[in-house]
Simulated assay, not measured.
Amino acid sequence: MTALVELGPEQDPAATPKTGGGGLGRYLLVRFLLIFPTVFFLVTVVFFLMRLTGDPISSALADRLTPQQLQERLHQAGYDRPLLVQYGDFLRDTVTGDLGRTATDNRSITELLGTYGAATIELTAYALLVALLVGIPLGRLAARHRDRIPDALLRFGGILAYAMPVFFVGLILKLIFAVWLGWLPVAGRAGTSTQLFLQNRTSVTGIYLIDALRSGDGGAVLDVLSHAVLPSVALGLLVGGVVLRLVRTNLIGTLSAGYVDAARSRGVGETRLANRHATRPALIPIITVLGLQVAGLLGGAVLTETTFEWRGLGYQLAHYLTVRDFVAVQALVMVFAVVVAVTNFIVDVVAAFIDPRVRY
């Protein structure tokens, strides 16, 4: 007698559509080309919205300059030209790679990105790690205790983590762990002595943890990590709640699939089913969602960096929004848009190789 064994989607050849390299190439080409209209649309919207608030020179210096001096400054900055002319010049400079200088403090945008970009990258990486470390294990726990008290509590916690404003979570964490308990630093990327030590080294990446590890100074490493805990948790919980609910939902669906039932009928234990047969297929949709959550992390970084005085691009963006510096805001928003678009493209590439069905 021939035993009939039901195959899972990763085992059944009929479950995976056959596609040639051309299909994958077209899919990736389309995804790559979508980066350009996405960035163009977002930057265009920001350009015109910023002009609705008035120019930064008038708002900052109107009470300190004569009308003639004010007009001269506006003319020098080009803010007295027709709006469409300003927009055309902005597009031309952007295409040629000239991001200009900030209008309020005359800083090079390129220098600004080089100085503060590493801090935002570091914080985003920490937060993503926290989101995965929190969301995946708790999502698996919720799926295994489906419709019971642990599941209900974890689902409620996931909703709460996503719904609570990141700056409010940051303030609560600061109050508890920095002020009341005194366990962790209240703000900054590192202590003053550590910052000076890392900045005075001949070769620096701008990412404090890497620089501290390369220095071989254990005290500097601990100082950097202690400063990173609170902002990383505050920002990571924002995405961790989403990951938790996604893992739970997908794992429940995978555990009820036919090939898992077949393995269960052969006597495979529930723990092994969850670890070996169900978790990997359940994580495939999460890879795509994580790419979308990069936008949430960058948006949350603005509030997180401001709350914890983490001097990255988000902190600078909040400052330049306050003073309505057109040039700086446009450039920083464009950088954020490019990072999100490129990240989503990379996620699409990874998902296409993991699961060929996403190409259709």
Rank of each mutant, 00 (worst) to 15 (best):
F40H: 01
L255H: 08
L317Q: 02
W183A: 03
H75P: 12
G253C: 02
R148W: 00
V327M: 05
V5C: 14
S108W: 05
A341S: 01
V243Q: 06
R189K: 04
S58H: 13
A263V: 10
R148E: 10
R64L: 08
R276A: 08
I207W: 15
L246C: 06
G20N: 07
D80G: 00
V302P: 06
G218M: 10
F41T: 06
F197V: 15
H75D: 10
S108E: 04
M334T: 00
L91I: 01
A14V: 15
F48P: 01
W180T: 01
P37Q: 01
G314R: 11
T66E: 12
V268E: 11
P82S: 04
D261I: 15
F48H: 03
R73E: 06
V333E: 04
I121G: 07
S108N: 12
L112A: 02
G269H: 13
D63F: 10
T104S: 15
L303M: 08
L292C: 03
T53D: 05
V335P: 13
S256C: 06
W183Y: 03
H227A: 06
R359K: 15
V5Y: 13
L246Q: 03
D217M: 10
M50Y: 00
L238H: 04
N275L: 14
R214E: 08
V347C: 04
T304F: 03
F36Y: 05
L70V: 09
Q86L: 09
Q86F: 07
Q69A: 13
S108T: 01
L141S: 12
